[in-house]
Structures are given as C-alpha cells and as structure tokens.
Amino acid sequence: GKSILKVSGKNVVMNRQLPVGLFKDKKSDATAVFTGKKSAIDFWVLDGNEFNIYELKAKNKMVGILTEIFFYSNYMRDVYWHNSLETKQNVKIRNPKKTDRSYNKLCDGIKNITKITGWILADEFHPLITDATDAVINIMNDNGIESELQYNKKQYDLKIDINVHK
C-alpha cells in the first residue's frame, strides 16, 4: 500500500508522545494554564525545516480530531517556534527529559523550521471531514499564515489480525 508518511530521508527526526502541558511560573497542578498531565501530540516528524504533527485515531470517527490538531499545531507554532506565549506570559512548557523521545533534537531544530503541517490520520473520518471538497481543511488552511501553518489529512486501512492462544 501507499505510505502515510513521506519524508525526505535527510535530517529526519521522528518520535511519539510529545507532551503539550503549559504552566505559569512552575510545573504543578495548581499552575496549569491548560492541557495538563496526559495531553500529548501522538507523534511528530521533524523533516529538515518542516515540522509535521500527527493526530491519530482508530475506530473513533470524531469531528474533535480537528480541534485537537488545530490546538497542537498552533501550540507548537506559538510556544515552541515563535516563543510568543513563553516569553510574554512567563510560562513553562511541560518538557520531557532532554534525552527522551528525541526531544533534544526537536529543541535544536525547532528554531530553523519554516513550516508546520498538522496531519489528521484515521481509518475513518467523521462525515463533516470526509466531504469530497475537503471544505473544512480548506477553511483551516485559509488562516492568514498559510506559509507557516497548514493542515492535511490521510486515511488509512485498519487491518488487525489477532490470534489468541490458550
């Protein structure tokens, strides 16, 4: 079948579960600005100067996949790439350890990115997302910062074979 991910093969860093918590002054439950303990980008790929963020769903055709990828993509643009929230609001990003999940490579490369693409991946999409014209994705892409932030979707076939042995 066709590959879901297309990468250049050069300077590619890929990993999973990037935490997206944001805290005022210090990391604690009481200082959480939004999205706390378990919120994370499902997986991500830093491909040269392009940063791809993926929200993955299986057997879960919710329209909420759009709000998730919208939030995560703008969060990465504002907090990590442009640092606008971090510097203006004295907030702390919930970071994994520098050695976990290639986080150090992401931190090193994020300042050099030129584009973020938020991808929604699912075996089946909600009817509002699956229309032939992709109207919702087109509206999201008409965002005034088209050169920096875009959205896309890809559907995949979910085939799971499970053998249970006694």
Rank of each mutant, 00 (worst) to 15 (best):
C107R: 15
W119L: 06
Y103H: 15
V91E: 14
N90Y: 03
T87G: 05
D108E: 14
N60P: 04
A30W: 10
G118W: 01
G118Q: 06
R101I: 00
R77A: 11
N83G: 06
N60K: 11
N112A: 10
K24D: 02
P127I: 10
I41S: 01
V13W: 04
K2E: 10
D47I: 00
L158T: 08
S3H: 08
I65M: 12
V63C: 06
V63M: 09
E148S: 09
Q17T: 02
L158S: 09
H82A: 13
N15A: 03
K88A: 14
L22A: 01
D25E: 12
F51A: 01
Y156G: 03
T87Q: 12
S147D: 14
G144Q: 07
F43R: 01
K153C: 00
L56K: 03
L5R: 09
R16I: 04
T133S: 15
K37C: 05
A32C: 09
G109L: 08
F71L: 09
R94P: 07
M14R: 05
D29A: 11
H126A: 13
K98C: 04
I137M: 07
Y54C: 01
K26A: 06
C107W: 12
N60C: 06
E55N: 04
K88C: 09
K57T: 00
Y151P: 02
I160Y: 09
E148M: 09
I116L: 14
L149W: 03
L5C: 12
K92P: 05
F70Y: 10
N163R: 14
